[in-house]
Nucleic acid binder design. Structure first.
Length: 486
RNA sequence: GGCGACAUAGCCAAGUGGCUAAGGCAGAGGACUGCAAAUCCUCCAUUCCCCGGUUCAAAUCCGGGUGUCGCCUCCA
């Protein structure tokens, strides 16, 4: 398996620290609001990485933090007149709701800054003790000049950065690029006791302290958005390696940005989308499918038309699965098999193609292409079946179904019933009583009687009327099939 | 100013030296159908932003140009 490593700028063969085990740390959101679309890409992508590693048989430990204490949270809490911790807590639970809708599996650990203050203080203290950091008026700064490798992730030298530095020069810092490990508290801000007085952690230190706590030095994969390469991850490397004296991370992975109308999403441009708002209009599975349909390192432009086009593609997959389920529901008859002998071999080659795609730096776009190939094979096979299903046909279709389920276990583009392992196609209106389903079946019966009498006007009127209500009818040689739209 | 990414059909998007440039959406024709829908089949880039170069061979490598985007400041 090949993984593109940001720090070496090339694909490398993936070799975990310990055979068979993988530790992943992904930088999670700062919980001062509902998550936005830009948060969703790393969530979905790294969830897919995790799922694929599990598919490959690795024992994966997946850690994603919540930044539940920082300037933005304090500011927002002040505006709303609530306690910052309460605000963060609220948006953490809202995060889970969105993540669940995107079929993002729960992390093994979701460490929070506020629950790791002792670890953070210990790490800062270590850096002060070993001369990597210095204390000024209750603030603690990391001294970048003391870390020889500073800039190795982002590929820039300190000299380059000085030239273009736009940061305010704080005269107390020994170098403009020195960054805060610990910030002294201003009046009224949340703070904790420390050897340097009341204060709170700087932004970068939390991820170092928490990833090292749960995964140890030299852990396998550290992920996040491109924008985190500098300064966040650069600083993480500096402070972590200065503290432990060991390599911090084996593979750095960064996802590309989401743009809207070809521009970076930002509040000032008015093209800022919250996941919550998108999920009100589109299913989470579609958003996930859309996010995975482009390679993770490429930029991805979002708009309604693109999402709608993706939705038609996803619908095609769903239709294939419905046809497959329907075919498997047929009673078995002896006789000649309708499915060709090569079918099973084709399935095997699709499985190989899927794995080859994912092995090549998690090429989800290519893997989705394989899923479409599988669906076409299934549709063709089902069509050849006619009305019959021999035991051999059944075995062949079951193999196709199992293959799809295993692909979906990686991609997560359909919800799965936790008890049965079946894909949930969700095409039947649910009202809890079965009334809707019963009424629809009754109407269809009436329409069938009209069709027998060649009363096409009535039949078409019923079909059109149901369509307006979101029920799609399809007449087939084997009878009428219906589904909920979308 | 410094650093970097990208440019493939109407749209989205794989592909980084060599068979017919994946796949999806849209579109055209055909099979099926009372008509639709769904599905299947066929077609839809002699060509990969432009100009040079390397090579037996380049969308893929090199140089130059043009364009778009991003990071350098909180940001996924």
């Amino acid at each position: 398996m090949e993984v593109y490593n940001t720090i070496t700028r090339r694909k490398q063969t993936f070799q975990p620290r310990e055979p068979g085990k993988v530790g992943i740390y992904v930088c999670g959101p700062t919980t001062y609001n509902y998550i936005h679309l830009g948060n969703a890409r790393p969530m979905v992508f790294f969830d897919t990485v995790r799922r694929y590693l599990k598919y490959k048989g690795y024992d994966v430990t997946y850690v994603q933090n919540f930044t539940d204490m920082d300037d933005k949270i304090i500011k927002r809490a002040g505006e709303e007149g609530v306690n910052p911790l309460e605000l963060a807590g609220k948006y953490i639970s809202e995060y889970y709701q969105d993540a669940d809708n995107l079929n993002v599996w729960r992390a093994d650990k979701n460490p929070k800054v506020t629950e790791h203050i002792p670890e953070i203080i210990a790490m800062v203290d270590k850096l002060v003790q070993n001369g990597s950091a210095y204390v000024v008026d209750g603030d603690v700064y990391f001294e970048v000049r003391k870390f020889a490798g500073y800039g190795k992730l982002s590929g820039r030298s300190l000299e380059d950065m000085q030239a273009g530095a736009r940061v305010d020069v704080d005269e107390r810092k020994r170098d403009p690029m020195d960054f805060a490990l610990w910030k002294s508290a201003k009046p009224g801000e949340p703070s904790w006791d420390s050897p340097w007085g009341q204060g709170r952690p700087g932004w970068h230190i939390e991820c170092s302290a928490m990833s090292l706590k749960y995964l140890g030095s030299n852990f396998d994969i550290h992920g996040g958005g491109f924008d985190l390469i500098f300064p966040h991850h650069e600083n993480e490397i500096a402070q972590s390696e200065a503290a432990t004296g060991e390599p911090f991370v084996r593979y750095w992975m960064h996802n590309g940005f989401i743009t809207v109308n070809e521009e970076k999403m930002s509040k000032s441009l008015g093209n800022f989308f919250l996941v919550r708002d998108i999920l009100a209009k589109y299913p989470g599975e579609l958003v996930r499918f859309f996010l995975l349909s482009t390679h993770y390192r490429s930029p991805l432009d979002f708009d309604d038309e693109k999402l709608t086009a993706a939705g038609r593609g996803l619908e095609r997959i769903k239709t294939g699965l419905r046809l497959l389920a329907e075919a498997l529901g047929k009673s078995q008859e002896e006789g000649e098999t309708g499915i060709t002998a090569e079918f099973s071999a084709v399935l095997d080659s699709l499985k190989s193609s899927f794995e080859a795609a994912m092995d090549d730096d998690f090429n989800t776009a290519l893997a989705i292409g394989v899923i479409f190939d599988l669906i076409r094979e299934v549709n063709t096979a089902v069509q050849r079946l006619g009305g019959k299903l021999s035991p051999a046909d059944r075995a062949a279709l079951l193999k196709a179904k199992e293959l799809f389920i295993s692909f979906n276990e990686v991609m997560g583009i359909f919800k799965v019933d936790q008890n049965t392992g079946e894909i949930i196609l969700d095409n039947v209106p649910e009202d809890g009583t079965g009334l809707a389903e019963g009424l629809i079946n009754l109407i269809i019966e009436v329409r069938q009687e009209a069709r027998k009498k060649k009363d096409w006007a009535s039949a078409d009127r019923i079909r059109d009327g149901l369509k307006e209500l979101g029920i799609i009818l399809e007449d087939t040689p084997q009878g009428v099939r219906w589904k909920k739209q979308g």
